[in-house]
C-alpha cells in the first residue's frame, strides 16, 4: 500500500523531530527559546497527528494515530535519519531544524496542488509553519555562524555532524509510485538555494558529502532512535488498551 507507507514516512519524520525538539522544553539557552521550541514541536506533532490519522484511514485496519505512533518499534519507523539525530548543542538543534524545514517548505508548496484533498489541507497549514521554522532556525544559524569564535566553531561542527544525513531527504522512499505526493528529488534545487543563502550570511559553506548516510526509509536507523522510542512509548505500552 504505497500511500499508507508514504504517509507513515512523513508522519514519522514529524513525530520524531517534534519529540526531539520537545526534549529542550525548560532547558533552552533563554526564556524566549523555551517558548519558541515548544511552538515548533507543536507544529510538527500537530502535522504528525493528521498524517497518522489519515494513514490509518488509508490502511483501513482500524489503527488510529496513537496505535501508529506508540505501537511500532524502531525497525518499523520510517523516518529519515536526520530527524532522529540527538539534539546535541543548540547549534546542532537549530541546524537540524533548518535542514528539515528548508526541505518541507517546498514539499508542502508542491503538495498544495495535490489531487488528494487531505494532503492539500495538511499542506496549506504546514507550509506556513515551515516558512516560520526556516526563518527562526535560519536566523539562529546566521547569528551563531557570524557570532563569536566559539559559536562559529560549534556551528561548523554541526554542519559536519549533520550534513551527511541530508541526501536522504531527497530519496523517493515509498512515495515513488504515489502521484498525490510531491517528487522529493525535484526539491533539491530549492533546498540548496535556501541553505546557500543562509550559509552565505552565516559564513558557512555547504560541504560535499562523498558518502551520505541513508537507511531510515527502510527502518535501518542509528542507535539513538530506539532509546527515543523507548522513552516516548513507555507509558502507553505499560497500559495496553487503556485510554488517556
Amino acid at each position: 500500500m504505497p500511500l499508507f507507507e508514504a504517509l507513515l514516512e512523513l508522519a514519522d519524520d514529524h513525530v520524531v523531530l517534534g519529540h526531539r525538539v520537545s526534549e529542550w522544553c525548560g532547558h533552552a539557552p533563554m526564556l524566549e527559546e523555551d517558548l519558541a521550541m515548544p511552538n515548533m514541536a507543536l507544529d510538527l506533532i500537530g502535522t504528525a497527528r493528521t498524517l497518522y490519522e489519515y494513514a490509518g484511514k488509508v490502511e483501513g485496519q482500524g489503527r488510529g494515530e496513537d496505535d501508529l505512533a506508540y505501537l511500532r518499534g524502531e525497525r518499523e519507523y520510517r523516518n529519515c535519519l536526520l530527524v532522529e539525530r540527538r539534539n546535541g548543542d543548540f547549534a546542532q538543534t537549530m541546524l537540524r531544524q533548518l535542514y528539515f524545514a528548508a526541505f518541507m517548505e517546498p514539499y508542502w508548496t508542491a503538495a498544495a496542488d495535490s489531487a488528494d484533498e487531505t494532503i492539500r489541507g495538511v499542506a496549506g497549514k504546514a507550509v506556513k509553519e515551515m516558512a516560520y521554522h526556516i526563518r527562526h532556525a535560519g536566523e539562529w544559524v546566521i547569528r551563531l555562524g557570524d557570532g563569536t569564535g566559539e559559536s562559529a566553531r560549534r556551528m561548523a561542527e554541526a554542519v559536519e555532524n549533520l550534513h551527511l544525513y541530508t541526501d536522504e531527504l531527497f530519496e523517493a522512499g515509498s512515495a515513488a509510485d504515489v502521484d498525490v505526493l510531491p517528487d522529493r528529488a525535484a526539491l533539491r534545487p530549492a533546498w540548496e538555494a535556501t541553505i546557500d543563502h543562509i550559509f552565505g550570511e552565516a559564513g558557512l559553506s555547504r560541504p560535499v558529502i562523498p558518502h551520505p548516510q541513508t537507511g531510515g526509509r527502510n527502518g535501518v536507523h542509528g542507535e539513538d532512535l530506539g532509546h527515543m522510542l523507548a522513552v516516548m512509548q513507555s507509558t502507553h505500552r505499560a497500559h495496553p488498551g487503556a485510554t488517556w
Partner: peptide, 22 residues
C-alpha cells in the same frame, strides 16, 4: 512531555508548559 501517553496529551502538555514560560 517525552512520556505523555498519547499524541493529544503530548501536544496539550507542550502547550501548557509553553504557557507557563510565557
Amino acid at each position: 512531555i517525552t512520556r505523555a501517553p498519547s499524541l493529544r496529551r503530548k501536544a496539550a502538555l507542550l502547550a501548557k508548559v509553553q504557557d507557563e514560560g510565557g
